[in-house]
Each structure stands twice: as C-alpha cells, then as structure tokens.
Computed example of a mutant assay.
Amino acid sequence: MRSVELFAGAGGLAIGMANAGFQHAAVVEWDHDACETFRENQRHHAHSVEGWPVHEVDARGFNFRALNADIAVVSGGPPCQPFSMGGKHQAQRDDRNMFPEAVRAVRELMPKAFIFENVKGLTRESFASYFSYIHLQLQYPELSRHKGENWIQHRARLEQHHSGNHGAPTYNVLFDVLNAANYGVPQKRERVFFVGFRSDIGAHWSFPEKTHSEDALLISKWIDGTYWDEHKIGRKQRTDAPQRVAQRINRIRANPSFLEVTRWRTTRDALLNLPDPEVHHDNGIANHVFTPGARTYVGHTGSLLDEPAKTLKAGYHGVPGGENMFIKDDGSVRYFTVREAARLQTFPDEYEFHGSWSQTMRQLGNAVPVRLAEVVANSVAASLAAACDNNNAKYIA
C-alpha cells in the first residue's frame, strides 16, 4: 500500500509506517538537516529508509496531485510548537501551524485513511474551539475554506453541514491521547492521534490495546524483584520504592492478578549495552558522544534510570536540561547522547543522525517514537486489508 509522509522530521513515524508494510510515494520535510539525516542513511543503505523519495520542500508548496492516485494512507506530525505546553500557545495564529496543509493533502489525495500526530497540549481547553475545527476539517476535507473566510466562519459552515441531513462524513475520524510507554517505548510521551478512514471503504477500527503497563513494572521491581535481577542490581544498590507508588504497591499485593501485558520499559533498559561515553570517548558507536554541562534546576531534574524517561523535548530555545538528561546511579546527571535519545525514541541502532548535537536532539525531540508509530500503523493496515477483503467478497457474491 502506497503512503505519503508529511512533516517527516527525523523519520520516526515514516519508519514505523514502512515497518508496517506501507511504501512511501513521497516523504516531505522542509528542514535541511532532517533531510540530510535521510540522505546519509540512504548512502549507508540503512534498510529503514532505502529508496524513499525525499522532498526537501515546504509542504505548502508541494503538489500532491503530481503523485497520481492510489495513495492508501497520508500520515504526518504537523509542527507542534503552536500547541506545545512549552511554546507561545498561538495555535492557529502561529505561522508554523501546518494542519491546513495536512487537510489539503487529504482533500487532494483522498486516501483510504490518514494518521496525524500532535502534542497533548492540543487537547487543552484553551484550544478546544480550534481542536473541533481540525476534527471537522478532517471529517469533511472537501469543504475547503473560501477566499476571505476566516477559520471561525469556516468552522461554523462545517458545523452546519455536519448537523444537517447530508449523510455520513467523508471520513470517520477518531482521536485519542496515547502514552508511548504503554506500547513499549522507554519514555513517558503523551501525544494526540487523529486517525480517519474514508467512509465508503467500510473499515472497522479502534485504537490498539495497551501492551505495557506501569503496574507490571511495579510488580517486577517491588514484589517479585525480577527487574533488578535482569539488570544484575543487588539489594544494596537498589533504591527504596518512592512514596508516591506505595499505595499502588499495597493494592497490587492485596489483590494479586495475572497481568497479560509486559512491564513498562525503562531508561536503564534503553541504555543497555551502550558504553559510558564519558569514559569511552572512542567507542565506535555513531552519535554516541558525551556532551558536558548538564545541571539540575527547579523543575528539571533529569530522568530516573529505573522508570521510562521523561518526554524528550526539541529545545528550540536551547536544549532543556531536565528533559534531555538522566540521573546516574551515583546521583550525578548527564545529558543523553544522540544515540541514547534515539533509543528512547526506539529508532534502530543502524540509523544515524545528521547535524550538531542540539540540531539532532531537536530532530529527536520532535519525532514520533518508531515503535508507537508501528503499532498504530499496523492496526490501520490490518483494518484496511480486512475492509478490502470484505468488499471483494461482496463483489464476488
């Protein structure tokens, strides 16, 4: 199935889509360093990006109609800074708001489905009106904004159309906030996903079930001790259970149950088998270089080794210390290397990043974790395949 990837960044969502079997007809990204990351990996014949048609261009100038028909899925993460908790919160007033281009891609390509990801901040109450506007546009992408019509007027027209007797929406659109840690990513990263299926294909879909849980991690650490055994950490080296989880541990002990999901993956899991770059400078591992200067300050205290990492941030005004460093076993802090951050975002180890440390960390801070992207993409692919089989069966009958 052919796909188009917009606002590709470092390629987390695009790799996840490819791992799920989608073939990219176009990968669109305007940032030069991010595009160089793709090209560098293609030069090294990295399996993840081999053969991708990369277009270094602003999405606003891309001609989607030139791709011809038969695009199964459009996916992408429109730049999130307009809606980020750490940004200026300008939403639709921010020049970096690319949701209109995401909708244009859907309108011009009319794919069978789409997947769009953005920051959890988009769901804040202050953005509720614009959130509903995005949702309505994705349901009715053919009802484009008129010349001279502002977004509030356009939303009102979409609402009137939706509430009138006009049949089913062009796309059935679902949205939810997913925590990447619940799907095997060693990072607490909450993002909102919009997933839509064209109404005429008759697809049945729901967001994938969680595969990993915090309770399972608590059991492995504080009840049966298997987590410490896995990492060869003796009792003298272990920390005590934090007070904030004590009640949960007691509840689990009082009501033991079989968990069918795996434990959350931790920062220590992600860093497994990587040499300490502060000691081993010439370690021969791409992007695994020590960066000095990490320090703690109020609200920025680093990620704990034995929990999923905090959400990596892009750091447009300098890399935020707390989100891009971790607390070592001796209590000191160190910045993540690019390779360590890539593991937190579940990029394959063969994948290399182009640019300075701050630029590559920016790419990673903006990325969709590959594993989370693959989970969502696999579920979409399965629903599309099932819908195709059902439609073929009806045609034969």
Rank of each mutant, 00 (worst) to 15 (best):
A72I: 14
D70S: 03
T346A: 12
Y130T: 05
P82K: 08
P277T: 02
S379D: 07
D282N: 12
E340M: 10
G11I: 12
P292G: 06
I219H: 14
L67K: 02
R295D: 02
R251A: 13
G321P: 00
V380C: 11
D33M: 03
F258H: 12
D224V: 13
V380H: 11
I115N: 08
A241V: 09
E125Q: 07
R157S: 14
A385P: 00
N391R: 09
R253W: 00
I15L: 12
F64V: 03
S332P: 00
F194S: 09
I201M: 13
L312E: 12
F258P: 13
F207C: 05
S303L: 11
H24W: 15
D282K: 09
G322Y: 14
S48D: 11
D282P: 06
P320T: 11
S303H: 07
E260M: 10
S356D: 01
L344M: 08
A294F: 04
K236Q: 07
K232C: 06
K88M: 05
N390P: 00
H32V: 10
S48R: 08
G184A: 09
T311M: 10
H146D: 15
G121F: 02
V4P: 01
F197S: 12
W151L: 00
I115F: 09
R295M: 05
G12M: 14
R157Y: 10
A26C: 13
M1C: 08
F353E: 02
F116E: 09
V4M: 04
A66H: 03
A216I: 10
R104D: 08
E260N: 14
